[in-house]
C-alpha cells in the first residue's frame, strides 16, 4: 500500500470523481453514446488525435514511437449490462430480456432507468408454493403506467440499473463499476501520462458485454504491436465464494487466463516484473467464467499479443458492485509504470 501514499495525493480523489460522474450515465451495450461523449470531453485535451469509429468506439492516439518504443493498444469497455423491453401488456407492464449477462437473482425489487429517463422497478410473480427462484418470464417492469397507451416505454427501449454510488470506508459500491472503474483508471492514466518511448492507441470500446464486437473491430483497424485490456474481475473472498485466488484490496490482478483467452506469457511477466520492481501489490488471475476485450484483440489480423490488468470486484453484474479504492490507485500506478517504461518485448 506504500505506492498509494507516494502517488500524487489527488489520484484517488480524481478517480473517485470520475467514477461519480461516469457511473450515473446510462450506456447499455450498443447505446454507449452518452458515456462516450463524457469521456471524449475529458480526454481530448490530453491526446494527439481522437475519433469515433463506425461501431461507436472512441479511439484516441497519443505519442510518437522512439527507437526502442512500441505501439501499445489499451482498451477499456464503456458499455454496461442492461435490459430491453420486449412486450408491453394491456395493463402497461413491460416484459423484458437481458442485454449482456444478467443474473436473475439481482433483479427483483431493483430500480431501472431507461435511456429517455423513464424509471421503473422489477416486479415478480411467484406461483403459490414455488420454491425455485423465479425465471425472467415471471418478472416484469412496473413503470407506473396503467395501460399500454400511457406506458412511457416502447418495445426495444433499453434500461440500466438505477442506483446512486455509495462510499463505504475505502470501498465504493455502485452499478456499472464493471467497467467504469477501468474507464476511470485509464482516463486518469491518459491525463497524467509523462514521457514515454511508446505510441498509444486508447480504445474506449462498445459492446464488450455482448461479444466484444467493439474491441474486435478497433483492433482490426489498428497496427498495434501489443495490447492491454483494463477491466474488472470477480473475487473469491466472500463467504462460501467459488474458489478463486483474487481478493479486494490485494492490488491489480494480472490475468494469466480467462474463459476466452490465455494472456501472452511475455506480457504477464512484464506486468509482474514491473509491479515487483515498484513494490506494487498484485495478484494473478485465473478466471474460469468470463472474458474481456483482450480475447478479440489477441486474434485480430496477424495477432496482437495481449494481456489484461483486472480490477478485483465483488458482486459482478449486480446493481451494487464493489471495488476497493486502493486497487484502483494501484492499477493506475502499475499501468502508468508499464506505459512509461520498457515494453514487454
Amino acid at each position: 500500500m506504500t505506492i498509494v501514499d507516494s502517488l500524487n495525493g489527488d489520484t484517488v480523489e480524481n478517480i473517485k470523481g470520475l467514477l461519480r460522474e461516469l457511473v450515473q450515465i446510462p450506456a447499455p451495450a450498443g447505446h454507449e453514446g452518452r458515456v462516450r461523449q463524457a469521456i471524449q470531453e475529458i480526454i481530448t485535451p490530453h491526446v494527439d488525435s481522437i475519433k469515433v469509429d463506425a461501431l461507436g468506439n472512441l479511439i484516441a492516439r497519443k505519442g510518437r514511437k522512439a527507437a526502442d518504443g512500441r505501439h501499445i493498444l489499451l482498451s477499456a469497455h464503456m458499455d454496461e449490462i442492461g435490459v430491453i423491453a420486449t412486450h408491453i401488456d394491456a395493463n402497461g407492464f413491460v416484459r423484458f430480456t437481458s442485454v449482456g449477462a444478467l443474473f436473475l437473482r439481482y433483479l427483483p425489487g431493483g430500480h431501472v432507468r431507461f435511456l429517455d429517463g423513464a424509471r421503473g422497478l422489477v416486479g415478480v410473480n411467484i406461483e403459490p408454493g414455488q420454491t425455485k427462484f423465479p425465471s425472467m418470464e415471471q418478472m416484469f417492469l412496473d413503470v407506473g403506467a396503467s395501460n399500454r397507451q400511457d406506458c412511457p416505454v416502447q418495445v426495444g427501449d433499453l434500461a440500466v440499473f438505477d442506483r446512486p454510488m455509495l462510499e463505504i470506508g475505502n470501498r465504493v459500491v455502485g452499478k456499472s463499476l464493471d467497467n467504469r472503474t477501468g474507464v476511470a483508471v485509464l482516463i486518469e492514466v491518459i491525463r497524467s501520462l509523462g514521457e514515454s518511448p511508446h505510441t498509444f492507441t486508447f480504445v474506449f470500446s462498445v459492446q464488450e458485454e455482448l461479444s466484444r464486437q467493439g474491441a474486435m473491430t478497433a483492433a482490426f483497424a489498428s497496427d498495434a504491436e501489443m495490447a492491454i485490456a483494463v477491466d474488472v474481475t470477480t473475487s473469491g473472498d466472500t463467504p462460501q465464494a467459488a474458489r478463486m485466488a483474487v481478493s479486494l484490496g490485494g492490488g491489480p490482478a494480472i490475468k494469466v487466463r480467462d474463459q476466452g483467452m490465455i494472456a501472452d506469457a511475455r506480457i504477464v511477466r512484464w506486468m509482474a516484473d514491473s509491479a515487483e520492481q515498484a513494490g506494487i501489490p498484485h495478484q494473478y488471475e485465473v478466471l474460469e467464467l468470463g472474458t474481456t476485450d483482450a480475447q478479440m484483440i489477441q486474434v485480430a489480423r496477424e495477432g496482437i499479443p495481449s494481456g489484461c490488468l483486472s480490477i478485483p470486484l465483488r458482486y459482478l453484474h449486480s446493481p451494487a458492485e464493489m471495488v476497493d479504492l486502493n486497487d484502483l490507485a494501484q492499477t493506475y500506478a502499475l499501468l502508468t509504470r508499464l506505459l512509461t517504461g520498457k515494453a514487454a518485448f
Binding site: 476466452g260 483467452m261 490465455i262 480475447q295 489477441q298 486474434v299 489480423r301 496477424e302 495477432g303
Partner: peptide
C-alpha cells in the same frame, strides 16, 4: 499455438 483453447494460432497465422 493455442488450438486446444481458442484456435488463436491458426486464425492469426492464416491471416498472415
Amino acid at each position: 499455438v493455442q488450438e486446444e483453447t481458442t484456435h488463436a494460432g491458426a486464425m492469426t497465422s492464416a491471416y498472415t
